[in-house]
Simulated assay, not measured.
Amino acid sequence: MAGFDDITKKAQAFLNDDKVKDALKSEKAEDISDKVLDGVADAVNKVTGKKFESQVDGARDTADKAVGNE
Rank of each mutant, 00 (worst) to 15 (best):
M1R: 07
M1N: 06
M1V: 06
A2F: 10
A2C: 00
F4A: 14
F4M: 02
F4T: 09
D5R: 04
D6K: 15
D6R: 12
T8A: 12
T8N: 08
T8G: 08
T8C: 10
T8M: 15
K9P: 04
K9W: 03
K10C: 07
K10M: 14
K10Q: 10
K10I: 01
A11W: 09
A11I: 11
Q12E: 14
Q12L: 14
A13E: 01
A13Y: 04
A13P: 00
F14E: 07
F14Y: 03
N16F: 09
D17N: 12
D17Q: 13
D17M: 03
D18Y: 00
D18E: 10
D18M: 03
V20A: 04
V20S: 06
V20M: 07
V20N: 00
K21G: 09
D22C: 01
A23S: 02
K25E: 15
S26V: 01
S26Q: 02
S26W: 01
S26K: 02
E27L: 06
K28Y: 00
K28N: 12
K28L: 04
A29P: 01
A29S: 14
A29I: 06
E30Q: 15
E30F: 00
E30W: 04
E30D: 11
D31Y: 14
D31S: 08
D31H: 12
I32P: 04
S33Y: 01
S33I: 01
S33W: 02
K35Y: 05
V36M: 10
L37H: 02
D38A: 14
D38Y: 09
D38I: 14
D38V: 12
V40Q: 11
V40W: 03
A41F: 00
D42A: 12
D42T: 10
A43C: 07
V44G: 00
V44R: 06
V44P: 02
N45V: 04
N45G: 06
K46C: 14
V47M: 14
V47H: 02
V47Y: 11
G49I: 01
G49W: 05
G49Y: 04
G49A: 03
K50C: 08
K50V: 08
K51M: 13
K51V: 12
K51P: 02
F52V: 09
F52D: 07
E53M: 04
E53P: 00
E53Y: 05
E53Q: 10
E53H: 13
E53K: 14
S54D: 09
S54E: 13
Q55E: 09
Q55W: 10
Q55M: 13
V56F: 08
V56C: 02
V56I: 10
V56Q: 08
D57W: 06
D57T: 03
G58R: 01
A59L: 10
A59H: 04
R60E: 12
R60A: 11
R60P: 00
R60S: 13
R60L: 12
D61R: 13
A63H: 01
A63N: 03
A63C: 00
K65W: 02
A66T: 12
V67M: 03
G68D: 03
G68V: 05
N69T: 11
E70R: 06
